[in-house]
Simulated scan of single mutants.
Amino acid sequence: MAYDEHTDRFVRMVAPRTAEIVTDGDLTPGDDQVVVDIGFCGICATDTHGYESAALPPAVFGHEWSGTIAAVGSRVSHLKVGQRVVAGVGPACGDCAQCRAGHADHCDLAFAEANGVSDGAPEHGGFGTRIRVSARRAIPVPDALSDVEAGLMEPATVTFHAVRRAGITLGATVVVQGAGPIGLLTAQHARVGGAGRVVISEPSEARRSTAVALGFTDVVRPEELREVLAELSGGLGADVLFECSGVASLFQPSAELVRRGGTLALLGYPGTDSSVSYGDWQSRELTVIGSLAYSHSDFLGAMTLVAEGRIDVASLHTGTIGLDDLEAMFNELGSGDSAHTKVLVDPRL
């Protein structure tokens, strides 16, 4: 089916710091595709950086979407019109080089989908009224999740994936550096995953207050972190440190807070090169784990934790705007002075 060109709008970047609202008159699903009415689309730091540079793949600018199936292709049997879904990645394809080698958790197709560069990637992201996408990427939402919780599942899954990769042991001393949405969700997943103490380091008073409201007691300013961690760990350092700020200059100082034989887990994505002490990392036998995106199973696991009330995503939601307010919000979030934690875009406003 085709839709009225006057009702379907989406936002795309045309130049750095310049976005435009475009109408699309044909969102007919292909045989293996679905069309989704967008309910919410979250704004993340990737989108803000994309607004500054206009360098993101079109499907990534607005990748945290959720909504309701509006139409399905002729070969789609596992989804139906009216079903709530979130944007994700499909199951391991079983045919790419990684899958054939037995590394299904790192399926090439799923990784390409997460980065918006797979064949048939959407022509635009979820900053719009509807999106046409491969059916394998639309993941059903459990009834127990609210629409707002569904709208926040993508960052909840990014952090689920990172904490799973870090392999926290029961009772571990964990540091989370940065208390933005990613840091706060990482801290919650670490707590659920068995961490004994979770120390959160954050310069913003408002974000520290949010961490305390989520039940964390060891919430400190960055300049206090080393002393507090030394006291909690008996001078050893962190068993696992999650670097969630993406500030390149913090990489080596972060590594120095990890005990000998501990793990440095990297979530924040730096925009510049980093200088580290290779000899320090080697001599202290650090395990360094990078984490980017997620697998299909990560979505299923993260949704289960949210549905059971073990991870609180809704408390991070601090504002909702319409498409016409998107540029102004990018400017606010990019200024570094915004009081928002997580803003959702509702194209119906």
Rank of each mutant, 00 (worst) to 15 (best):
L170C: 14
G167I: 13
P181F: 10
H161C: 01
V141F: 00
V141A: 02
L145Y: 03
L185Q: 01
V174Y: 04
G183K: 07
T157M: 02
A144T: 10
P142C: 04
D143M: 11
E154M: 09
V176N: 05
L170Q: 15
P142W: 04
I139A: 01
A162C: 04
P155M: 03
A187H: 03
A150G: 11
L184E: 09
R136M: 00
M153T: 15
P181Y: 10
L185F: 01
G180K: 06
L184F: 11
P140V: 03
T157P: 08
A166K: 14
G151N: 09
A179W: 03
L185G: 02
E149P: 15
L145D: 06
T173G: 05
L170F: 12
P155H: 09
G180A: 13
V158D: 14
V163E: 00
S146H: 14
P140H: 04
A172D: 05
P142Q: 04
A156S: 15
V174F: 13
A172C: 07
D143L: 08
V163N: 01
A144M: 08
V176P: 02
P181V: 15
E154F: 13
D143S: 14
P140W: 01
S146W: 13
Q188R: 09
T159C: 12
Q177D: 10
G171L: 09
L185I: 02
Q177A: 15
Q177G: 07
R137Q: 05
I182Q: 14
A144Q: 15
P140L: 00
G171H: 07
A156G: 10
T173A: 09
L152H: 12
L145V: 07
V141Y: 01
R137I: 00
I182H: 14
I182L: 15
V174H: 07
H161G: 03
L184S: 06
T159M: 08
V175C: 11
P142H: 05
D143A: 15
P140K: 01
L170M: 12
T169R: 14
T186D: 00
A172H: 04
T157C: 03
I139N: 00
A156W: 05
L152S: 08
A156V: 08
F160V: 06
G171F: 14
D143Y: 12
V163A: 04
T186R: 03
A156N: 15
A156H: 10
I168G: 02
G183S: 08
I168K: 07
G180H: 11
V174P: 11
G178N: 10
T159G: 03
H161P: 00
T186V: 09
A162F: 05
R164M: 10
L185C: 02
Q177Y: 13
G151L: 08
L170N: 14
L145M: 04
E149N: 11
G171Y: 12
G178T: 12
V163G: 04
I168F: 09
Q188D: 13
A166T: 06
I139V: 02
T169W: 12
